Amino acid sequence: MTTLTENNRAGDFLLSEANGTYSRENEILAAGNNLQAGAVLGRVTASGKLTALDPAAETGAEDAAGILLATTHATTDVAVVAVERDAEVKADQLVWPAGISTNDKNAAIAQLAALGIVLR
């Protein structure tokens, strides 16, 4: 029997968010990112573009800036929607970088909390 794996769907990680679209922002995801919905994002300071969170970076991408709303394959820079403030999210549905340390993950959770994004 064939086993199928379903990826995260857009917004599955959300428990609640602010009225309207206050929690969301239209952003640009930098080329080269192949990310699932729920991926924790960082922002490259020089370009202002979002990218996968990278705790080892020294570009701004080491700080959590939001969560990707929908799965996106960015072969070039692409417009996306990110949850960037005032939301409750399912902690077990967030997508973290492979091999992230507990300390780096806790730091990113604190950065999300500072944006009003609470993990449940």
Rank of each mutant, 00 (worst) to 15 (best):
D54Y: 02
E25F: 00
G66V: 00
A114Y: 01
T5Y: 03
G20Q: 06
D12E: 15
T3Y: 11
E84S: 05
A107E: 12
A30S: 14
G11C: 04
D86L: 06
D77P: 04
N106I: 03
G48W: 05
I100C: 14
V118Y: 04
S16Q: 15
T71V: 02
G42M: 08
L68R: 07
A107K: 13
A82S: 11
D86V: 00
A46G: 09
G60P: 10
T102L: 14
T102I: 12
N103W: 00
A74V: 11
L15F: 05
N34I: 15
I100T: 12
Q36W: 02
G60C: 11
A61H: 11
D54M: 04
G38T: 08
V118W: 01
G11K: 02
A74E: 12
T72I: 10
R9C: 06
T51A: 09
L15H: 10
H73T: 13
L4C: 02
R43Y: 00
N8L: 05
I117G: 07
L115F: 04
E6P: 03
A79E: 13
V78Q: 10
A56V: 10
T59L: 05
D86H: 12
A108E: 14
L4K: 07
K105Q: 15
K90C: 02
A18I: 06
P55T: 06
A18N: 12
A61T: 15
N34F: 15
E62A: 08
A87Q: 03
R24M: 04
L94G: 08
A87K: 01
N26A: 06
S101K: 04
Y22V: 05
A18P: 06
A113Y: 02
G66A: 02
L35E: 04
N7Y: 07
A108K: 12
A91C: 09
L94A: 08
L94S: 07
A10I: 01
D92F: 04
P97K: 08
V118A: 09
A39L: 00
N19V: 13
D63K: 12
A98C: 04
T2N: 06
N7Q: 13
G48H: 10
T2P: 13
A87Y: 01
T45S: 15
T102Q: 15
A74H: 11
V89Y: 07
A56P: 03
N7P: 10
L112C: 10
